[in-house]
């Protein structure tokens, strides 16, 4: 039986310049941030990123890793806007495909199901379609004759997601209240990388949560990395909430000097130093779930 346990560096070494990378989670919730920071430490460049964006997108933009962004929003939830993403947009540095949240879901699902597109209404009669010639419509072949948007498949070279538990074979358990679209990101991707708070014995999944928490099976996963606090500063409910204090530090680090300082303290460091820099595991585990 394959042992899929890897390190962050081993996973990043499998990625290539120019790849299309999908990142799971949602906004400031359950983002594979340890893996994102590992990408920042690597020479990777020219990435196309598909994300329900949060600080994953902001960090990758700040480090100049992103050539094209496929997004519906970039938000830190408790702080509505991400300044690093805004700066990248406002300098015209990013190519973008701006989509309705549901269109992203549909594009990932189409890729997973090996379909060229899936029909959808979202985006019609808006500038999403007017401004983006790559989005085309189709007419229903049935009696209704309805014109629909043909949301193109969004195939990914790699998917990165963060979960609570995984076993060494790649089965993964999400204990939080929303699986978001992590299963679709994995389904749409050629290579699927899962970081987790803890690697556990397969037999112990049932001790941690009900069957519905088993969101990813090993057929959907190529590698697992044990990365405790791997979603920080985003939440990994119920283990820890969104670290608002850290997000404020992150948001303040836009000027070149401040960004260099942020990088030195929080990016160009190993996991142990990162944990210390953000106040230690006990502090992070004490952050309550966000109140929305």
């Amino acid at each position: 039986m394959a042992d899929k346990r890897r390190t962050l560096a081993e996973v990043v070494a499998e990625l290539r310049d120019g790849m299309t990378i999908g990142i799971g989670g949602w906004g400031a919730r359950r983002k594979p941030m340890a893996l994102v920071r590992a990408i920042l430490r690597s020479p990777l460049r020219d990435l196309t990123v598909v994300s329900y964006g949060g600080p994953d997108v902001g960090l990758l933009c700040a480090a100049g890793k992103v050539r094209k962004l496929v997004f519906g929003f970039v938000s830190l939830d408790l702080i509505p806007l991400d300044p690093h993403f805004r700066m990248a947009r406002q300098t015209g540095a990013l190519q973008v495909m701006e989509l309705d949240e549901g269109m992203i879901q549909w594009g990932l699902r189409a890729a997973m199901l090996r379909l060229p597109f899936l029909p959808i209404r979202a985006g019609l009669a808006t500038d999403v379609t007017r401004l983006q010639a790559e989005l085309a419509t189709v007419v229903s072949p049935y009696a209704d004759g309805e014109r629909l948007l043909a949301m193109p498949a969004l195939p990914l070279d790699a998917a990165l997601v963060h979960v609570d538990h995984a076993d060494a074979r790649g089965n993964a358990q999400i204990l939080g209240p929303d699986p978001y679209f992590d299963d679709l990101f994995c389904g749409a991707a050629t290579r699927r990388y899962v970081t987790c708070e803890r690697i556990v014995a397969t037999e112990s999944f049932a001790d941690h949560g009900c069957l519905h928490t088993l969101v990813l099976d090993r057929g959907m996963v190529d590698a697992v990395v044990e990365a405790p606090l791997g979603a920080h500063p985003t939440s990994c409910s119920p283990a820890y909430g969104i670290d608002l204090e850290h997000l404020k530090t992150y948001c303040a680090a836009t000027a070149p000097d401040a960004w260099a300082d942020y990088r030195a303290r929080f990016v160009d460091v190993d996991d142990v130093a990162y944990g210390d820099a953000v106040g230690g595991a006990a502090r992070i585990h004490a952050i309550p779930p966000p109140i929305f």
């Binding site: 509505p80 993403f85 973008v96 549901g102 979202a122 985006g123 009669a125 808006t126």
Partner: peptide, 22 residues
């Protein structure tokens, strides 16, 4: 500004296209 280079970037369209048409 323009779609390619906005003067002030806000959230992005979020779920608004789907909401308003459905």
């Amino acid at each position: 500004g323009t779609f390619q280079k906005p003067k002030i970037q806000l959230l992005g369209v979020r779920g608004i296209p789907g909401n308003t048409i459905n």
